[in-house]
Design a binder for these strands. Structure first.
Length: 439
RNA sequence: GGCGCGUUCGUCUAGGGGUUAGGACACAGCCCUCUCAAGGCUGGUGCACGGGUUCAAAUCCCGUACGCGCUGCCA
């Protein structure tokens, strides 16, 4: 039987990193073993059920590179894929349970009568666990329908997993204790329970369940914050799973190759934003330049940098790619390439341009560069160093003023590469302008 | 309270009877260097505790503590 996994979020208007990681593991498992991933929206609580809330889920998953085979937006053979549209199906199963004597009424609500036996859970991550359900005081009969006719999570979740032919339920460990109840429901409905895999939870720095208030708990934070999706997906996979060979930076293809449920550990993990940040820099450093351009463009566009064509932008980005850790840092690294009206960092200007003798050194460098016919970074370096020697100063005494003169900043790409790309004319003009203001 | 799961550097993890307990992030120092990164080198901190089993336990068993989860007419 072909594998079917699912991600079943509630449309809260917020895609939690824990949920995203659950989705990722379901996706990896389905893709690795040629199965299908189903997206089901658990929107029985109508109050927070909005189109925007659905969009947040679709966008967050897509951004991470997760695609699904069936879902509200895709259709499929087992729809509808929103619980709010599945009332008839729930009613059908409810009537069956009722007819078979599994239900009883309690204050207008309906409860499921537990068989009161020991339930064995065979979890692919946690192993075999026996739950003694015999004591009603500790395991009360669960409610499955409220007096107003609305449904309770446990019931609709199980009905949907049966109807949608799920073979594997991969979900957060917070559901492990609910699993025996779910198995009782499967059995009462005459269905074979799926395989379960409960994955450890993601905690905040205080060791508590990651909540909305915690920085970085929403995928939106990463989308808006200049992260690259492959790095975030990589990091999320490293929480509770590892390739076991000391590698940290992994492509999705590599993870797909190594991933299996049996490799997931049972220990809750604290989310470490620092490490995610580091991994982001590693992915940027090593990614294909074309991919970098693709990811960088929206940030450049948003900053309204008038770069003209992609062909003009690409070489500039190539200088920034090995140095930055966040895509949102990009505008400051590229904007001065495309305008003469770039901002000048007052602190850098004060420290470098106003330094004793800066004017003379800039003018000397300018003269030397003016005489240079072969404008490439190697020749630029040779010329600058020769000029420094002639002046009897360290190369840095020319490098720093030149950097501030052409970019307005004290940090940036390698100077010689930057000068080469800027071109002789612009470099000389900017040096002249800086010399006029220097001490 | 009851039930379930867990506990290896601050954090993420590898190791699952014999290891100088490995890697990564972060931190500190050094090297490289035009800035910032990257890279290289070095350093410190860790098997929760107590009992067993065993020639030998981080590793297996029991207990304790602590953490997390569930215990809803939330999902």
């Amino acid at each position: 039987m072909s594998i079917r996994t699912r991600f079943a979020p509630s449309p809260t208007g917020f895609l939690h990193v824990g949920g995203a990681r659950t989705a990722l593991f379901n996706w990896l498992y389905a893709r690795k073993f040629g199965g299908k991933l189903i997206l089901r929206i658990e929107d029985t609580d109508e109050k927070r059920n909005t189109e925007e809330a659905h969009a947040v889920i679709y966008q967050g998953l897509s951004w991470l590179g997760i695609d699904w085979d069936e879902g509200p937006d895709k259709g499929g053979d087992y729809g509808p894929y929103r619980q709010s549209e599945r009332n008839e199906i729930y009613t059908k199963h409810f009537e069956k349970l009722k007819a078979d004597g599994h239900l009883y009424e309690d204050g207008g609500a309906f409860r499921f009568r537990s068989p009161r036996k020991t339930v064995q859970v065979e979890d692919l991550v946690c192993g075999k666990i026996a739950f003694d359900m015999s004591n009603p005081a500790t395991h009360p009969d669960m409610t499955i329908r409220r007096p107003d006719g609305s449904w309770i999570f446990h019931f609709v979740n199980v009905v949907d997993d049966i109807e949608m032919k799920m073979t594997h339920v991969i979900r957060g460990e917070d559901h492990l204790s609910n699993t025996p109840k779910h198995i009782e429901l499967y059995q009462a409905l005459g269905a074979e329970p799926p395989k379960f895999a409960h994955i450890p939870l993601i905690l905040n720095k205080e060791g508590k369940k990651l909540s909305k208030r915690d920085g970085g708990s929403s995928i939106t934070h990463f989308i808006d914050g200049g992260y690259v999706p492959e790095a975030v997906a990589n990091y999320l996979c490293l929480l509770g799973w590892s390739p076991k060979d000391n590698r940290e930076e992994l492509s999705v293809a590599e993870i797909l190759e190594l991933f299996d449920l049996s490799g997931i550990n049972r220990r809750n993990a604290i989310f470490d934003l620092d490490k995610c940040f580091w991994l982001n820099g590693q992915h940027i450093l090593h990614m294909d330049p074309a991919r970098f351009v693709e990811l960088a463009k929206p940030y450049i566009d948003q900053a309204e940098v008038l770069y003209g064509t992609t062909e003009a932008l690409a070489p500039v980005l190539a200088l920034a790619q090995p140095k930055i850790k966040h895509l949102s840092d990009l505008p400051a690294w590229v904007s001065f390439f495309f305008t003469e009206d770039f901002p000048v960092d007052p602190e850098a200007s004060e420290k470098v341009l106003q330094k004793e003798g800066a004017k003379g050194r800039i003018e000397a460098l300018s003269a030397a560069l003016n005489a240079l016919s072969d404008w490439n970074h190697a020749a630029l370096e040779t010329t600058l160093k020769a000029t420094a020697t002639a002046l009897g100063v360290k190369a840095g005494e020319l490098v720093h003023p030149a950097r501030v003169a052409v970019s307005g900043r004290s940090v940036g790409p390698g100077l010689y590469e930057m000068l080469e790309l800027l071109g002789k004319e612009r470099v000389l003009a900017r040096l002249a302008r800086a010399a006029a203001q220097a001490a």
